[in-house]
Design a protein around this nucleic acid. Structure first.
Length: 860
RNA sequence: GGGCAUUUAGCUCAGCUGGGAGAGCAUCCGCUUGACGUGCGGAAGGUCACAGGUUCGAGCCCUGUAGUGCCCACCA
């Protein structure tokens, strides 16, 4: 047998393992030999091909991987599919930046050449991501990797688009959309993030035509005044409704604006009179439609002023224009005041530029029918289950409120909209395949990236090929694991697309986790410099420690605070596992052969530890099924440290250093079987170290992957025997406590008296000697004032009576009295006896009796 | 404005159908006990945010208040 090295080295453990697993096909789904197993499927949320994976990716994929490995060992044929997202806007921005550095210009290059550059980018970064996945120890089926722009996905996207188009669920329309003037593309509503920005509220005089008087109108955006078409007040507003039909002068350009009434206006807000800019504000747009106003767009794509504004403003940036207009109006004496305000301003999620609401012709998905279908489904038995459950409500509410989805983007990198216009006839056709003939011109825009990632659950499995083996076997996905920040972007859209095209929800369960923050709970950001690169952590502590730290010590759905403290703890824990294993394996003789353990051969200590192991397995399984990974790992952690290593492992030294060969052999079998269970249970969390240790096990198979997830022994343990073990532990603890309290060294010799049967004394004696350093243990036949009782026996520490020992006894008496009083109160309460759980009542009675008995000795 | 989450030891957090308050780290004391000092044994440290209520019994359930974080909507 090879020898394990003295200290746990993550580098040695992790070296070559991914290749080993891959080479032996453990990551592959749908292997011939696994076809009889039930299928289980997941996909990784596709990372953007823009760059490197961060700590959030590491957390997400670690959770997925833990589930994948757990399911695999639990007897499932697992598909864990890798994939990447072309990330339209983000990648295009990166490629453009790179080209700029090289002194190139995308417009000069043209679409074709630019896309070549983008594909080059994808190849490079895709490879890099792929390597990072392996460094994180992910057991994905790399032979089935997909990309949102690969051939199959292009087919899927075109087919979906065409069907929705034909059904009238995709339409082209002119509406107010969110325009990103830096990236020069339309955005969807959820790509706009609002922040509380400082701004100004400008009050202007709007004179009546005859200059007899004026109305006060306030705005935050004077630069839009050139597009104004009316001034609006509430029809119920007594102050203004007498003016309906009159006209006022726009102080920015001298044009006449009609005064109109609309219920949209809030009488309480501002001056009660509002200017209306139909082409640059969504609410004004609605008002204008109701009143038949004109829509005048006054800005270019880069948010500079266009030719419809007076000459002196043309070409100015919107903010320059704002200053200039205000100045001009002030010069005319029509500026009343400027107030400082804080208001919500929409920014582009990607470029952070202030979004310009603009009238624009774009493609939209009509959401109502699609979202309604999902809502109906979520009320049925076939709903997708959310973990934690509260996210189901968040998911549902969004569906209930969402507006049509703007899906066209003015970019080149992405799925081009499959709609063609005939330049001669003007005919418009949606086609899954390119239209033949020079007259057909394809729409210039591409689709929102999320349009294609929404198809991931079925598209990546092979749809639209209905006969795709993956699709048939693994759809719908068993569980989707993702952070809460992309529920709207991704989970919702997968849901309605999946449901629309397959009639079932695309995933049975959704597990939502939190975001990773720094040790103080702050968001990781470049400016704070508190970001953590998972690969730095891996280098220093190893993948296993990182994985363990990320997946445990938190609560599902809540944010995770990353700290090196946790990684240290994980690393120490793994070192503990390593050393316990090393010790056990070093005690196994070369002749050792694992075999089935029989209940009859077990000592009381064996029975105790095996019963603890059984309940551990039950707890771990229950929690794994609920995705309570932290909870599951906690059980293993405390079992390993406390029950197994600090106690049982130490106890076995008595037997192993003795000369009863039969007992020795049994003990080794128990140690071996529990060690193996620990390794398998920990394997999903820390695959490398457990595989490494596994390879030292006698009779090991090719890989720990070949093992089955452990189950309970099925033994009916003898309650009294188990109780004896518990009593022994308690006695040792008490004696240690006594020593610490009296200033004795832990290994100071001590004399004990034992009250109980000779049989019990015989089995307990060697442990009392070894672990409490008992110099003598004298069996006594009479109860003694100094006895401390454990359920199976009593122990007295022989010592001279001192003030201190008296005080300690007084303390004990006080404790017992309090407990007895508490217990009496409960037991004398008829309601408790009648209503409480009978087992609880029984346990309470027993405690009461034993406390009373102990107290009686002291008070004799 | 609406909603969700959160408040437990100095710090970071557990506490899983209500039944004697826990872990890791930090602190203090003691141990080179034949796997591990990356360890072992022990100690100290908490009106479980606050106020009511339900219950025989509340950290846990209900109502309210306050602090913190986040999401959605949005009034020019």
């Amino acid at each position: 047998m090879k020898e394990m090295s003295k200290a746990y080295s993550h580098k040695e453990c992790e070296q070559g393992k991914e290749e080993f697993w891959e080479k032996n096909h453990y990551f592959e789904a749908m292997r011939e030999e696994n076809l009889s197993k039930p299928p289980f499927s997941m996909i990784v949320p596709p990372p953007n091909v823009t760059g490197i994976l961060h700590i959030g990716h590491a957390t997400n994929t670690t959770i997925l991987d833990i589930i994948a490995r757990y399911k695999k060992l639990s007897g499932y044929d697992v598909l864990f599919l890798p994939d990447m997202d072309h990330a339209g806007i983000a990648t295009q921005a990166k490629v453009e930046a790179k080209l700029r550095e090289e002194g190139k210009n995308k417009y000069e290059m043209g679409r074709e050449k630019f896309l070549e550059e983008a594909w080059k980018w994808k190849e490079e970064h895709g490879d890099y991501i792929s390597r990072q996945w392996r460094a994180l120890g992910l057991s994905m089926d790399y032979s089935k990797e997909r990309f949102t722009l690969d051939e199959g996905m292009c087919k899927a996207v075109n087919k979906v688009f065409k069907k929705l188009y034909d059904e009238g669920l995709i339409y082209r329309g002119e509406r107010i959309i969110n325009w990103d003037p830096v990236l020069k593309t339309a955005l969807s509503d959820i790509e706009v993030v609002y922040s509380q920005d400082n701004g100004h509220f400008y009050y202007f005089k709007y004179w009546f035509e005859d200059h007899s008087s004026y109305l006060e109108v306030a705005t935050t955006r004077p630069e839009t005044m050139f597009g104004d078409q009316a001034v609006v007040f509430n029809p119920d507003d007594e102050r203004f409704n007498k003016y309906e039909g009159k006209k006022v002068i726009n102080p920015a350009n001298g044009e006449l604006l009609p005064l109109i009434a609309d219920r949209y206006v809030d009488m309480e807000f501002g001056t009660g009179v509002m200017k209306c800019t139909p082409a640059h504000d969504p609410n004004d747009f609605q008002i204008a439609k109701r009143h038949g106003l004109k829509f005048v767009k006054t800005m270019n794509d880069d948010a500079t002023m266009n030719d419809l504004v007076p000459e002196e403003y043309r070409g100015l940036d919107r903010y320059e224009c704002r200053k200039k207009v205000v100045k001009a109006i002030e010069a005319n004496g029509d500026l009343i005041k400027i107030e400082d305000i804080v208001h919500n301003v929409g920014h582009s999620d990607r470029s952070k530029a202030v979004v310009e609401p603009m009238l624009s012709k774009q493609w939209f998905v009509k959401m109502k029918p699609l979202s309604t279908a999902v809502m109906e489904m979520q009320k049925s038995e076939n709903r997708t289950e959310f973990f934690p459950q509260r996210f189901a409500d968040i998911f549902y509410q969004w569906l209930d409120n969402t507006d049509d989805w703007c899906i066209s983007r003015q970019l080149w990198w992405g799925h081009r909209i499959p709609v063609y216009t005939n330049s001669k006839t003007g005919q418009v056709v949606c086609s899954e395949t390119p239209m033949e003939g020079e007259d057909w011109v394809q729409d210039n825009d591409v689709l929102d990236t999320w349009f294609s990632s929404a198809l991931a659950p079925f598209g990546f499995l092979g749809w639209p090929d209905e006969n795709s083996p993956l699709l048939k076997r693994y759809y719908p996905l068993d569980v989707m694991v993702t952070a809460y920040d992309i529920i709207f972007f991704w989970v919702e859209r997968m849901a309605f697309q999946g449901l629309h095209f397959s009639k079932v929800m695309p995933f049975k369960k959704v597990y939502i986790h939190g975001l990773v923050r720094d040790a103080q709970g702050r968001k990781m950001s470049k400016s704070l410099g508190n970001g953590i690169d998972p690969f730095d952590v891996i280098e220093k502590y190893g993948t296993d420690s990182l994985r363990y730290a990320l997946a445990t010590g938190g609560t599902p759905g809540l944010d995770i605070n990353f700290s090196f403290n946790k990684v240290d703890m994980a690393h120490n824990f793994l070192n503990k596992v390593w050393n316990a294993s090393r010790y056990i394996l070093s005690t196994l003789p070369t002749s050792f052969t694992p075999r089935e353990i029989q209940k009859e051969e077990l000592s009381y200590l064996d029975q105790w530890i095996l019963s603890e192991a059984d309940s551990l397995i039950n707890s771990v399984k229950t929690n794994m099924e609920k995705y309570e990974l932290g909870q599951a790992a906690d059980y293993v952690y405390s079992f390993v440290y406390d029950e197994f290593c600090s106690e049982y492992l130490e106890y076995t030294k008595v037997t192993l250093q003795g000369d009863d060969e039969t007992k020795k052999e049994t003990t080794l079998q128990v140690l071996y079987s529990i060690l193996k269970k620990i390794l398998v249970v920990l394997f999903p969390f820390a695959p490398f170290i457990t595989e490494e240790i596994y390879s030292y096990l006698p009779n090991h198979k090719l890989s720990i992957y070949e093992e089955e997830y452990p189950s309970v022994t099925g033994f009916e343990y003898d309650k009294e025997e188990v109780q004896l073990a518990l009593s022994l532990r308690q006695a040792i603890k008490n004696i240690r406590n006594h020593k610490a309290n009296t200033g004795l060294a832990p290994n100071a010799p001590i004399d004990l008296q034992f009250y109980g049967s000779q049989e019990k004394l015989d089995v307990v004696l060697p442990y009392l000697t070894r672990f409490s350093f008992a110099r003598s243990v004298t069996k006594i036949e009479k109860e003694n004032d100094d006895l401390i009782y454990f359920p199976s026996f009593g122990i007295a520490i022989v010592e001279e009576e001192t003030e201190e020992s008296k005080a300690r006894r007084e303390k004990r008496i006080e404790f017992l009295r309090n407990e007895i009083a508490r217990s009496e109160k409960m037991l004398s309460n008829p309601n408790f006896l009648a209503k409480a759980n009978p087992a609880k009542v029984e346990a309470e009675k027993q405690k009461y009796e034993s406390y009373k008995a102990e107290l009686a000795k002291y008070l004799k």
